[in-house]
Design a protein around this nucleic acid. Structure first.
Lengths: 86, 86
DNA sequence: GCGCTCCATACCCAATCGGTATTGGCGAGC
DNA sequence: GCTCGCCAATACCGATTGGGTATGGAGCGC
């Protein structure tokens, strides 16, 4: 599991679409699809329901979404913590 | 910044030595040195005082250590969160 | 049925990461 | 004070990973 995967996952969840998420993250669609898939494989969990309309979070996906946001928030705060302390 | 870098950083901090940290993480010493260096560069912070005896945390390093442990704990909990909820 | 819009897959190339070999620097011991 | 030993740092190379382009397959709307 990588921070990039978590970022991609959150982007897909927020946009309901791999394609739109890819745009937001400035990458093309296939890498986005692959990372989501890799995350699902690693967690042995289906995170999204796929359809031709887009991607919709499963219950497991919802749980991961909240958790992933926490992780990313913490990581985002790192430079400030290092400099000013916390 | 990657989770691997944070893991390596914590290992060096806990062992006071790049060499010992490398053993604990089952990698060789040069990659460990490089990742620590990359982390310092990215954060624009000196995390360790180097000597021929080993590595000692700076004040900034101490702050990062606590923060990094939080991040890694959260990440470690991810599979449980996804499965059982949180 | 046709076309459009999705996600999934195949293939290739570039970037990243780790390993081996080596260097440089500092302290300990004789 | 010179050598030996231990440590981190660097150079170089091979392997792995990650992203891009091109393409396929499936479902919805007209």
């Amino acid at each position: 599991m990588s921070l990039t995967q978590l970022e991609y996952f959150v982007a897909v969840a927020e946009n309901g679409s791999v394609t739109r998420a890819a745009e937001k993250c400035f990458v093309s669609q296939p890498p986005m699809t692959r990372q989501i898939r890799a995350l699902e494989d690693e967690l042995h969990a289906k995170l999204f329901e796929r359809s031709t309309r887009g991607m919709q979070l499963t219950a497991e996906g919802e749980r991961l979404l909240r958790h992933a946001r926490s992780v990313l928030e913490l990581v985002k705060a790192t430079p400030a913590v290092v400099r000013r302390g916390c």
